[in-house]
């Protein structure tokens, strides 16, 4: 190697290392419904969009009108377990909350508390029975039992090679009539993402 080229190479390299080390951290506040994809992994936008779309689909299917006709009142739905069978640690709790929110906001079904939440509410009712005034204390035995249970699972397939990655997520939800075990609605939502990563940077 020509010694001059050798020298220039080092000086350029040292200068570049110096400049890359000076990058400043910036923080910008954004709206919570803004889509920001950084790593390609499952994120809050996926959770929100999938839950909204699936619940919209769920509530436009015949089971709802059939229930309203037969029972004369809104069905009570409990959101059960959504199993994570992907290669990522997806916060399933957030997804379940998104589903519950989409259902409650739609107004056509009643969402009843989960087993853990029910325990807390019962503790509170027990507390009220002992400490609250008779007029304001809430009675036991008036809970609404769920008519349907929504549960499902999340799966993913990853295909990766040399800086390129295709992520495929599939969410399957099933609504089951608790009394009859009949599956009244099956929903499916797929998301496909391509993640590219450059081999070199300055």
């Amino acid at each position: 190697m020509n010694p001059l080229r050798f020298a220039v190479l080092i000086l350029v390299a040292v200068a570049l290392v110096g400049t890359t080390g000076c990058a400043k951290r910036t923080v910008t506040r954004v709206e919570t419904d803004t889509t920001i994809d950084l790593s390609g992994r499952w994120n809050d936008t996926d959770s929100r969009l999938v839950s909204e779309e699936m619940i919209r689909d769920c509530l436009t299917h015949p089971w709802l009108t059939q229930h309203l006709t037969a029972a004369g009142k809104k069905p009570a739905v409990i959101v059960g377990v959504v199993r994570n069978r992907t290669t990522e640690h997806i916060p399933v709790g957030t997804f379940i909350k998104d589903i519950e929110r989409a259902m409650v906001n739609a107004g056509s079904v009643e969402v009843v508390a989960s087993a853990i939440e029910r325990g807390d509410v019962r503790d509170e009712r027990d507390d009220q029975e002992r400490f609250a005034s008779e007029e304001t204390a809430k009675a036991f035995g008036l809970e609404h039992g769920a008519d349907y249970m929504l549960s499902g699972e999340m799966n993913s397939i990853t295909d990766a090679e040399e800086g390129k990655k295709v992520l495929f997520y599939q969410v399957d939800l099933t609504l089951i009539n608790i009394e009859t075990n009949a599956k009244v609605w099956l929903g499916q939502k797929k998301i496909k993402k391509f993640v590219g990563q450059g081999r070199y940077e300055p």
């Binding site: 190479l9 080092i10 350029v12 390299a13 570049l16 790593s39 081999r199 070199y200 300055p202």
Partner: peptide, 20 residues
């Protein structure tokens, strides 16, 4: 794991420094 993934992208300047 995230850092290892990021390091798939090689820094040319660091490679050049390593060269000498």
């Amino acid at each position: 794991e995230i850092r290892i993934q990021d390091l798939y992208t090689k820094s040319l300047s660091k490679q050049a420094v390593a060269l000498v």
